[in-house]
Amino acid sequence: MTEVITTSINLTAPEPEHCPGPESEAAGQADACAGCPNQEICSSQTPIGPDPDMAVINERLSIIKHKLLVLSGKGGVGKSTFTTMLSWALAADEDLEIGAMDLDICGPSLPRMLGNVEHETIHSSNSGWTPVYVNDNLAMMSIAFMLPDQDSAVIWRGAKKNGLIKQFLKDVDWGSHLDYLVVDTPPGTSDEHLSVTTYLKESGIDGALIVTTPQEVALLDVRKEIDFCRKAGIKILGLVENMSGFVCPGCSKESKIFKPTTGGGELLAKEMGIAFLGSVPLDPRIGKSCDRGENFLDLYPDSPASTAILDVVDALRDAVE
């Protein structure tokens, strides 16, 4: 079992509520630190000057040609599912080397959905951490490979999450060359998003793919995600509307089940001035394939969902390359 980083700072009292964490850049300086017996200890641990790990991260990531973030803002819109489909579709080109990184630290799902390899473990060597290979040209990294069992909860503060993300970027050995690194992020605009954008800033991020569903409830959070990307200086490659209809497995006809109340993803993309990459209907066999870790695109190539997903992938590759 690979050991992840842990706090080595000796505190004189328990961490107070809303503590930023002794390894955070705000340690000893946040509002919650006022009056805390640990304030002086934490303040002395705050790094001064450039992060020495950035040079190591940049060197490690220099072998990666394209880096893509998959964002949503809203949970339950199929972001991890689409990350899985995107990874399968890119890896279908045997000339490409693909990496998938699962940054949903509290709810990692890619190891089950992408090859059903959640029982695998990663190995450490002089060259770094070896990711788990789903096939010859598709590798994956996730905290799920480090947990003692599948039901173990990850109950971490932000500083520890940030530390693990840094280790993923600094220590994972993707080999001599990687054409695409697809990064699956959790919902929202918080610690994980800030960390990965900060650490990837110097090495470069090609852009973000934003996933939504037609309902206004999802679009509300997607607007915040778009605002986050613009404030963080991340190029938005496009918006894809997932679950835009329902594909009957028997007759393959499509019907609307989540009807947009305000125009859906296409109108939102037009209003926000970003590219609309397409709509992907809901096929129940997608969920079944993900549960089994199987490649839906290979199993059901005639599904309208497969056609729509591949069209989005082609548009995404055009935007990147």
Rank of each mutant, 00 (worst) to 15 (best):
T2S: 13
I5K: 14
I5P: 14
T6S: 14
N10H: 12
L11D: 05
A13P: 11
P14L: 09
P14M: 12
P14V: 14
P16H: 07
H18E: 09
H18S: 08
P20K: 05
E23F: 11
A26R: 04
C33W: 03
A34P: 01
C36Q: 02
P37M: 11
N38Y: 03
E40D: 12
I41H: 00
C42R: 03
S43P: 01
P47L: 04
I48L: 10
I48D: 09
D51H: 03
D51M: 01
P52M: 15
P52N: 15
A55S: 15
A55K: 14
V56Y: 05
V56I: 15
R60S: 06
L69I: 06
V70G: 05
L71D: 01
G76S: 10
K79V: 00
T84S: 12
T84H: 05
E94D: 12
E94W: 01
L96C: 11
I98V: 15
I98S: 08
M101C: 04
D102F: 07
D102M: 07
G107N: 10
G107H: 08
P111A: 06
E120S: 15
S124W: 10
G128C: 13
P131Q: 02
Y133T: 05
V134E: 04
N135I: 03
A139C: 07
M140H: 00
S142D: 11
S142M: 11
I143C: 04
A144D: 12
F145I: 13
M146V: 11
L147F: 05
P148M: 05
Q150F: 12
V154I: 13
I155H: 06
W156C: 04
K161D: 00
L164S: 06
Q167T: 13
L169K: 06
V172M: 01
V172F: 02
D173F: 13
D179T: 12
D179K: 06
Y180M: 08
V182Q: 06
V182Y: 11
P186L: 09
G188A: 11
T189G: 09
S190P: 07
D191Y: 13
H193A: 08
H193D: 02
L194P: 04
V196W: 08
T197H: 02
T197N: 04
T198F: 03
T198R: 10
T198K: 06
L200K: 02
K201T: 11
D206F: 03
G207Q: 11
T213N: 00
T213W: 01
P214A: 01
E216G: 12
E216Q: 15
V217C: 05
V217G: 05
A218L: 08
L220D: 14
R223A: 14
K224P: 13
I226A: 06
G233E: 02
I234A: 05
I236K: 01
L239S: 07
V247R: 00
G250I: 00
C251E: 10
S252R: 15
S252L: 11
K253Y: 06
S255N: 10
K259D: 01
T261W: 00
T261F: 00
E266N: 04
K270V: 14
M272R: 09
G273R: 15
I274N: 10
F276H: 15
S279R: 12
S279M: 09
L282P: 05
L282S: 08
D283E: 13
G287V: 08
K288N: 15
D291F: 05
N295G: 05
L297E: 01
L299P: 00
S303I: 04
T307M: 03
A308S: 10
A308R: 03
L310Q: 09
L310R: 12
D314F: 04
R317L: 03
V320S: 06
V320W: 03
V320A: 04
